[in-house]
Amino acid sequence: MREEIFLGGLGGQGVLLGGQMMARAGMDAGLNVSWFPIYSPEVRGGSTTCTIVITDGRVGSPICERPETMILMDPVAANTFAPQVAEGGLLVLNSSMIEQPPGHEDCETLWVPANDIAVEIGNERTVNMVMIGAWAGRTSALSIEGIAEALQHMLPERHHKHMPANIAALERGAEIGAESRQPGG
């Protein structure tokens, strides 16, 4: 397997930490991984991005020209980066903030109302977890337990009290992702 995932969003939406968590979960699952921040020929505005490779082979280039998957959390990132998603690839879009489908015709789109769910959960900083959970539920590339464990490793001790909210966000996202796999979902 080889997963190339691009995350983009606003500073503060947890793009970098979310990406690190995914890569770390891949490492803990015995896979080869890389996490690489910010690189894009078109980084603008307050966008934060990172690229993750998770593979059972060699990582090779940590930079992906046409990522298979893009998880985009705000309209600027969506407009800037979505057209670069691979043909036949997957866009995971935050429908709480993004209105128009920005990609190209030859890709699938998974809409996730991440901000709304985060507010429901009672922790607005879990937007990234909802989005990543949705991706995991859709692709089954990594288990939710593995991702949650990786987060626990990466969060400083003083933030561990937020773990239950983060796990809830991952699970809610995963449900949406899993449902989307159903025919007509």
Binding site: Q20, A23, M27, N32, V33, S34, W35, F36, P37, I38, Y39, V59, P62, I63
Partner: peptide, 9 residues
């Protein structure tokens, strides 16, 4: 700068 900033196992 990539090798400096990227994370890997």
């Amino acid at each position: 700068a990539i090798l400096a900033n990227m994370m890997e196992p």
